[in-house]
Every structure is written in C-alpha cells, then in structure tokens.
Write a protein that binds this DNA or RNA. Structure first.
Length: 122
DNA sequence: GGGCTGACCTACT
DNA sequence: CAGTAGGCCAGCC
C-alpha cells in the first residue's frame, strides 16, 4: 500500500507550494502566525517548516511573506536587522498596528477582518 | 551517518 | 509575567 502513496507522497517542494498557497491567501492588513499557516496548509505542529518555506520562496511569486509573524505577534527578526524594518514597514503600510513592538493577533486575524469591514474599526 | 541550527509552538513551572 | 522543556522537521556541515 505504500507504493500507491509513492506518487502522492509529499516532496519538500510540494510542501512549500502548499505553504505558499496559504500565505498568498492572507488578505492585506491581516497577519497569521507560523503555527496557523502550518495548520491551514495541512501540517499541524510543523511551524518551523513554514519559516523555511518562506525563506526559500522564489521572488517572482510576489509572496506576502510579511503577513506571517510568530505566536507572540512579534516579527521573528532582530529589531536591528533590515529585514525587521522591511517587514514592519510593509505591515504598517497595510494598516497593521504595533503596540510595544507586538501585533494584537486577535484584532488583525483574517477572521476579524470581515468584522472590521462590517462594523468599522472599533 | 550524526549533530547543530533555525523567519516556531505549546504547556508547564 | 518570564523562563524552561519537549516536540517538530528541513538544511547544512
């Protein structure tokens, strides 16, 4: 029975494709943490793989990698790094607010995005 | 083949 | 609230 799954067994590249698809589905102005992305991609518990998938993402894909932060709502880069500033600038340009260097994941999750559209920003 | 590292998470102390 | 411990998996010596 293993031979049947041989064709459908996930190669590393296919796993990245799935992660990228989920990330592309994050609407502007929203953020998800690595664990959520992993879960939505069908790999619960494999949050680390998401980070690697983003790092290995081709540039031509226009992947909104900046909409993925860690579970604490913080950017997973040293604040002194240029990557941190780039990610933060992109997020703030989309309306994501930082308080004390952290994002309120409940307020800026895709689920709450619809509420903001209907009820307006609180 | 083994060991370390890392764009991580959860649970517990 | 901070710190620790265990888990997870892909890359790179």
């Amino acid at each position: 029975m293993n031979d049947e799954r041989k064709k459908t067994s996930d190669s590393s590249d296919d796993r990245y494709q799935r992660v990228w698809a989920v990330v592309e589905g994050i609407p502007a102005g929203c953020v998800l943490n690595y664990g959520e992305v992993a879960r939505l991609a069908g790999y619960p518990g494999k949050a680390r793989m998401v980070g690697m998938a983003l790092g290995r993402a081709p540039r031509g894909r226009n992947l909104p990698w900046h909409r993925v932060v860690n579970a604490q709502g913080r950017i997973s880069f040293p604040e002194a790094s240029s990557r941190y500033r780039t990610q933060r600038r992109l997020l703030e340009a989309e309306g994501v607010e930082f308080e004390d260097g952290a994002i309120d994941l409940d307020r800026f999750s895709p689920g709450q995005a619809l509420d903001r559209l209907l009820w307006g920003p609180h």
